[in-house]
Simulated assay, not measured.
Amino acid sequence: MKHFAKLAAGLFVAASFMATAASAQTVLRSSDTHPDGYPTVEAVKYFGELVKERTAGRYAVDVYHSAQLGEEKDTIEQVRSGVIELNRVSMAPFNGTVKESIVPALPYLFRSEEHMHKVMDGAIGDQIKKAFEGAGLVVLAYYDAGSRSFYNKQKPINSVADMKGLKFRVIQSDIFVDMVAALGANATPMPYGEVYSSIETGVIDGAENNFPSYDTAKHFEVAKNFSLDEHTILPEVFVMNKAAFDKLTPEDQEIFKQAAKDSVAKQRELWAAKVSESRAKVEAAGAKITTPDKQGFIDAMKPVYEKHVTDPVLKKMVEDVQAVQ
């Protein structure tokens, strides 16, 4: 009997320990406006799997895709205030909060996605990461968002003259508003989720984005003319609330940073495949893709740079970006 009592007591202690360990798991919430299966959503899921594995289940990540927690403007405030811990969001909405984020958002700054990777993976990317800490955020990773181009329901765009008078939805960013104005068009900042109906009803003529967003948001159904001007090659940021990050042990901080770094390679691979798939899909559905002469668009950006790149730090950063080969 004593043997069975000891065994039962041992099982009770083990069960209690397991229950305590299970209850000690910290579940972190992460937001994304894109649908399930989108490359950024899958990359954050992968990050969560690595974190869970490498912390022996002490941390887990729940990914809320499809703007379940709100549009980007809302979730940025949520992650800064600590309501949620993680967020995948475009860098442009931070332009008014983190001045260094202005540089990657500048139109026609990056020559290619490869150029952007070299810049963001190096010292300039580290400089921008450091600046985000002042906004209460830790940048864990930069994700690809490809190149953004204009699309509309009215006509093909082959030159700056074709932009005149058209109304485009843009990200809630002064740079994007000024970029569109410099091209002779009208900018309307609005949440991503409102774009389809706004084009359909004529509130706007079109928007600007990459092929996967043009596809997955079904904007190609209401705006058939896609102009491959590639005005921005703007990276996304995967951020964490700084207070939450600072609570991690140094060992766990390294686990989080390495898991995020590993997720970047995964996201880039998924992104490249998605771009090819989405372009083929929209073309098959009747989207008309044109490639305008970019020089006229680039020349029109002089007042945008003069307005937004006045700080000596930003001027130096732009020069450094352009010098990266």
Rank of each mutant, 00 (worst) to 15 (best):
L86K: 08
V177D: 04
D162G: 14
I102H: 04
S173T: 07
K153E: 01
N87S: 10
V160K: 11
S159F: 01
M179C: 04
R169E: 12
F150R: 10
S112N: 05
V170C: 12
T188D: 10
K129C: 07
P189S: 07
Y108A: 03
V177Y: 02
M163Y: 02
A187L: 00
F110I: 06
A181R: 15
F110K: 03
N87R: 11
K118E: 15
G193Q: 01
M163A: 04
K129N: 00
A131M: 08
R169W: 01
D126E: 15
A141S: 11
F168V: 11
L109K: 12
E113D: 06
Y192D: 09
Q154V: 13
P191R: 01
G96V: 13
D174S: 07
I84C: 11
V138F: 00
N152R: 03
E194D: 10
H117A: 05
F132H: 10
P104K: 15
Q78L: 06
A141P: 04
G122M: 05
L140K: 06
A141M: 04
S101D: 09
Q127P: 02
V160Y: 12
G134M: 13
S101V: 07
G165K: 14
M190V: 00
P107A: 10
T97G: 04
Y196D: 02
L137E: 05
S90D: 01
K129I: 00
P191V: 06
Y108M: 09
A105Q: 12
A131W: 07
L137N: 09
I124W: 06
A145P: 09
N152H: 05
S112A: 08
G96S: 14
F132L: 10
T97R: 13
L183V: 14
G136Y: 08
V83R: 14
P93R: 05
L140I: 06
S159H: 09
P189F: 02
K99L: 13
D121F: 07
V89G: 04
A181Y: 00
I128K: 00
G136Q: 05
D174L: 13
V79Y: 14
D178T: 05
Q154L: 06
V98G: 09
I175W: 01
V139K: 00
A161T: 10
K153P: 00
F168L: 08
L166H: 03
S173D: 15
D121M: 14
I128V: 05
G146R: 09
R111H: 06
I171P: 10
G193N: 13
A187S: 12
F94P: 12
P189L: 00
A105W: 04
H117L: 01
E114H: 10
D121K: 15
A182W: 13
E113T: 08
T188Q: 10
S147G: 14
S147V: 08
V195S: 11
G184M: 09
H117E: 08
H117R: 11
I157G: 12
M179D: 03
G184A: 10
H117N: 08
Q154D: 04
E133Q: 13
D178A: 15
Y196R: 06
N87A: 01
A92K: 04
A135C: 06
S90T: 07
R169T: 12
E194R: 15
K118T: 13
V79F: 03
S149H: 08
K164S: 14
I84E: 08
V180Y: 01
A145R: 15
N87P: 10
G96Y: 07
I171N: 14
S81N: 14
I128E: 00
A135I: 15
